[in-house]
Structure formats: structure tokens, C-alpha cells
Design a protein around this nucleic acid. Structure first.
Lengths: 133, 133
DNA sequence: GCAGAACTACTATCGATGTAGTAGAAACTA
DNA sequence: TAGTTTCTACTACATCGATAGTAGTTCTGC
């Protein structure tokens, strides 16, 4: 199980930990908006499950509370999500792009930005290659 | 409930119906690859659920079998998926694009294509506006 | 018309997920 | 140190989704 599949709540918890850094269950809970804040034990249970999935781990203990830290990186987790979607949409990114455009979510600026990212990325790849020579 | 949320199996079934047009449970089942083909009644149960969700409806009856047809369009269903992902990723499409680029799934060609789609789309929008005058 | 095939409608099960309660230990606090 | 707070560890439970079995009805080929 390379990258674990996360559910919605699990993902929200991971987001909190990524943002806060190593933290306690209580801190995670309080990171949720006051409205729609799950019970303490709901967060706790889900944190435990994330531990089982190796997405979080106990880093240390402060007084009587465990401090959890992320094992899974945001990149990996988000990547998993995107790949999941692509496989559901069947294959390549074109359907995805098309939808984004047609719903106005992808603007000319976004595309320009994408080009830049791609350029930077390719440059980086190139440097990696050079270095490895 | 504007656009129903579909699960993996439900989506696969919808894909089959979109492809086949109005069809029977049996036909849907046979649209699955012989390996990994769920039991007839598994498909049946899920088709019934899709009916409840108003994604499919019984169009007619041929001999003793119901013929189902799609109510939900591929566009709407896929759009729902994409929107879901965007909300999980939090906000705009940039994180999404970045991931696609970094994993090599989005190439220069894809971006060029996106630009074209965008151009066509905008042209279309413009024509709609003109027409409505 | 009857035997077997196909289909429907219903029921059942299992694991995952979201939700949260409880008992008891540990740690502050007055 | 005794009361209160906080946390852990465990348990409970409802819902959903994937899975499929069964009983009974309806066709169909001979």
C-alpha cells in the first residue's frame, strides 16, 4: 500500500496537521471551524485510523497528550486524489481540462501559469540530469 | 439534490449506459471486462440505486426485462466529480494543474490543446451572446 | 404445455466511515 | 491532597456501498 486512500474527514485532519505541524488531537479539533466541528472523540478516532494507515505517527508526548505528526506529505496525498479522479474520468487529463474550461474555472491566466510551471519543471529535470552525469 | 454523487461502481455503470444507450441490466453487466465482472445481481442492485438517485430511469420493457436509460448526462456527472476534487484540494485549479505537470501527465501538447478549447469556448460564448440580442 | 432460462424484487452480509459515548488514568489547581 | 479537567483507549452504532443469494414470476424453445 504505497499511498493510503484518505476519506474526506481524514483529509481534513491531514490538512490541519500539515498546516499546524506536529500537534495534539485537541489542536486538530480546534482547527475546524466552530460550526461543523466534530466531537473531540470523533477527531481522536479518525486520528487513530490515520495512524493505522501510516499517514500520521506519534512524535512525542507532552504532559499526558500525544503529539502527532504527518508521515504522508501533502504532495503524495493530493497526488493520490488526482490520480484517482483521472482513473475515474478514464485516462488522460483532456476531459478534465475541458471541464474546467467549460465551467469557467480555468482561465487564460491559469494556462499561462501552467506553462510557466511546466517550463520551470522541465528546467529542473534537466538540471537533475546534468547533475547525475 | 441537483446532481447526485456517484460511487465508483455507479459511475462505471453510467459509463456503460452512456456508451450503449438504453439497455438492460444484462447488457450492462456484459459491458464489464470478463475478469472483474460483478455478479448479475450486483449490477442489478446498483442499477436500482441509480434509479433512486434519478441517474437512470426505466424507459420501457422488452419481454420480461426492463430497459434503462440515462437521465444524468456524462457532462453533469463528470463535472460533479471534478468539482468535488477541487473542493477537496481547496479552491482553484492551480494545485491540480501543478500536480499534473509534476507527474508528467500534462504535456506541452495538452496545454496547447487547452488553449484551443478555451478559444473555441469563448468564441461560442460570444456567439451565444450575439444571438440573444 | 412444460422444462429450463432469464429476470425481478427483496433480503443479507461485510467493511469503511462518520459519529460519539464511557471508563479510567494522568495532570493541573486550589 | 482532593476535586476538576483533560486525555487516552476502547467500544458502540448507524449509514453507505459493494457484493451476492433466493424466491418467485415470466418467457421461450421444443
Amino acid at each position: 500500500m504505497a499511498i493510503p486512500k484518505l476519506t474526506t474527514l481524514e483529509l481534513r485532519i491531514m490538512e490541519a496537521v500539515w498546516k499546524l505541524g506536529p500537534c495534539s488531537v485537541r489542536e486538530i479539533q480546534e482547527a475546524f471551524p466552530a460550526t461543523r466541528r466534530p466531537a473531540y472523540t470523533t477527531i481522536q478516532t479518525t486520528v487513530y485510523r490515520l495512524e493505522t494507515k501510516k499517514a500520521l505517527r506519534r512524535a512525542k508526548k507532552i504532559s499526558n497528550a500525544h503529539i502527532f505528526e504527518a508521515v504522508l506529505s501533502p504532495r503524495a496525498a493530493r497526488g493520490r486524489l488526482v490520480d484517482e479522479l483521472l482513473s475515474l474520468l478514464g485516462g488522460g487529463p483532456s476531459l478534465l481540462m475541458a471541464h474546467l474550461i467549460e465551467t469557467g474555472k480555468l482561465t487564460r491566466d491559469d494556462i499561462a501559469e501552467a506553462e510557466e510551471v511546466l517550463a520551470r519543471f522541465e528546467q529542473n529535470e534537466f538540471e537533475q540530469e546534468e547533475k547525475s552525469k
